[in-house]
Structure formats: C-alpha cells, structure tokens
C-alpha cells in the first residue's frame, strides 16, 4: 500500500467510530470587527494611522519620499520599470535607480520601489502579489521598501482582504518592517526583510 493510501485508510478508520461529525459553523464577520476601528470616508487615513503604529511610514508625496531617502543617504535603489517613468522626474540626478533587480548584487540596493496589489486599513498592511509586484527580492532585500498604493486598493479589514484574494500563485501581506524579538524578547526591526517600510499614496 502506498503511504498515501495507508494514511487515508488510517484516517478513515480513526473517524469511522464517530457517531457524528462536528459541523462547520457559519460565523458572522461582525465577530472579528475591531472595536473603535477608525472609519473614515478616506480609507487612507485609518490605513496610515495603523501603518505608523507598526513602525511603518505612510507618505503622500513623491517629494517626501525623495527627501526621506536623501536624508539617510539612500541613493542607490531599484524601481519597478512600469512605475519609474512617473517617479523619475522627482528624483535628483545623484540617485542611481535601476529598473532590473540583479540578484547577484543584493547588497547594492538600499531601496526597492514596487507596486502594491492592495492594502488593509485595519492593520496597516500592504498587499504584494506576483501579478502586480515586479520582483519578490526587490521588495524584500533592500533596507527600504517603498510600495506604491492607490486609495481604491485599500480593504477595510482582514476579512475583506482574505475573501478577495486574487488568483495569483503568491500573495504576501506586509505589516510594517521585518522584525524579531528572539534575543531576550527585545524588539529589533529589519531582520531579513526591510527595516523601513514605506507606503506611498499615488494616483
């Protein structure tokens, strides 16, 4: 007997004596409605507030992004080729921005600018997907990740986002910078992924 058949027959044998099976409960999404959730006509407002609370950085102008990068001396980076033409005019000449991510030089990129597939207001989460986000590594390896987000892409909460998952082999929700508390429970940001997570409102 194959391992598959062996496991499935053991499962069937284990469950056969049960007089009844536990039913699948229906549940109301009101159950997971977060209290005092900020409701605003503009979903960017609660999203930005939550993003700040998880140490993320919401920005609404390209010039603010350029200022943030310049202030810390982060001038080498990657940008999604589709997004770059619109952003390029705002970047000074001393920035070196590539539109193809070379995985052999991961340490050369201080920032990566990609396009978000969505966001979740309740948690300050950015949604990236293979269909929309040009490169997984570019959104992960550089110290700064900038996701370009449009207002209408923002879901109110986890439940709304999870029931609208697009048909895509890989979707990732990013909620603030990468972090760990493994060493003595002390919170450190920027472990394997970005230490700075920016959401830039566009469009």
């Amino acid at each position: 007997m194959s391992s598959r058949d062996q496991i499935l027959s053991r499962v069937r044998a284990a469950l056969a004596p049960l007089p009844r099976r536990a039913p699948l409960p229906e549940w109301d999404r009101e159950l997971v409605r977060v209290r005092q959730a900020q409701t605003a006509a503009d979903p960017w407002i609660p999203f930005a507030a939550r993003l700040r609370s998880v140490s993320g950085t919401p920005l609404t102008a390209v010039s603010d992004l350029v200022a943030l990068l310049a202030r810390s001396g982060w001038r080498r980076g990657y940008c999604d080729p589709v997004a770059w033409p619109a952003l390029a005019p705002a970047f000074p000449r001393d920035f070196q921005v590539e539109t193809a991510f070379d995985r052999t030089r991961v340490d050369d990129y201080q920032f990566g600018i990609t396009v978000a597939a969505g966001a979740i207001a309740e948690t300050g989460t950015l949604v990236l997907s293979d269909q929309v986000t040009s490169a997984r590594l570019a959104a992960l390896a550089p110290w700064v990740h900038v996701a370009l987000l449009r207002r209408e892409q923002i879901f109110p909460d986890i439940t709304a986002a999870v029931t609208a998952l697009p048909d895509d082999p890989n979707i990732i929700w990013c909620t603030g910078p990468s972090k760990t508390a493994d060493v003595e429970g002390i919170l450190i940001e920027g472990v394997h992924g970005p230490g700075v997570q920016v959401a830039l409102l566009v469009g």
């Binding site: 979740i120 948690t123 998952l165 082999p169 990732i172 929700w173």
Partner: peptide
C-alpha cells in the same frame, strides 16, 4: 500582534 509582519498565501509555483 494584530497580524504578524508577513502573511504569505502560496497557491503554486511562479508563473
């Protein structure tokens, strides 16, 4: 945490 930093949904190999 209301949500961990990364929540990844994988439904297949890359296209």
């Amino acid at each position: 945490q209301p949500l961990t930093v990364y929540t990844e949904f994988i439904s297949g190999p890359r296209r």
